[in-house]
Amino acid sequence: MHSTRLSTHALDVSIGKIRICDALNLSVASGERWAILGRNGVGKSTLLMTLAGLRRPQHGELNLCGVQTGVSPSAPALCVPSGTFSSHDLRRLAKIRGVLPQHQSDPFPATVLETALVGRHPHLGRWDWESEADRAIARQALAAVGLEDFAGREVHTLSGGERQRLAVAQLLTQQPQLFLLDEPLTHLDLAHQVAVMDLFKAITADEATATACIAILHDPGFAVRYCEHALLLFGNGEWLAGRSQEIITADNLSRLYGYPLREIRSDNDRWFIPR
């Protein structure tokens, strides 16, 4: 049983003078993993924030895990401008869709476990403190990214890659049904890149969780290997969405990145390298 986690209808998104996508129609069902590919600065992160319901599109509709923009049960549609969510909806959305931001900042000292526990925030009432159950969820998430022995460490002592895995653990602690990942593989070594992608593959493949995942990636090989769907952004409003095996081709990628690429096949894997 697959349910729609995210759908857009005629979504126009642009930032400044950059048109990111014109009339984007996208439907992401549970169990699916999507990769977003495109050059630097075409607006991948902006699109991801729009899909997360945090930025208003220029035009079009967005439905996130059953929550529709501009329409909320508590507030009449007139109160909320089309294309945005009410603050009530944003609180509701925080429980069902999670975002891995591109950057993490820790201006104040905190432990690793505390940082992972931040993901529980939307699930707690105003006066609640994190319970033993919340802590167990956070420990489990830390274990999933291989940080189980770091719980008491200070975040400032972590390496870049460890901090990135902690951000993933924080996202897992949030337990959303839709994962939106902005460059999840930054700072990670090869083994951990594979481990993180395997982790999200296992989570979305588990039918009981009914989750879906959309990730901004920079390696088309990883996109083909881990995401059966892809969205290519060409930078002039033009987009291409479909099955990775069909649309991630050397021709399309050469046009996408503005640089000739060559495909290398080995067993079932396909890798793309610059000519």
């Binding site: 609180r91 975002v99 925030h121 949030q174």
Partner: peptide
């Protein structure tokens, strides 16, 4: 608790509602 989340960045706080 909202302030705790806010201290870790506007964007993260936004995504957490």
């Amino acid at each position: 608790r909202e302030l705790n989340v806010l201290a870790r960045g506007d964007r993260l706080a936004q995504t957490l509602g």
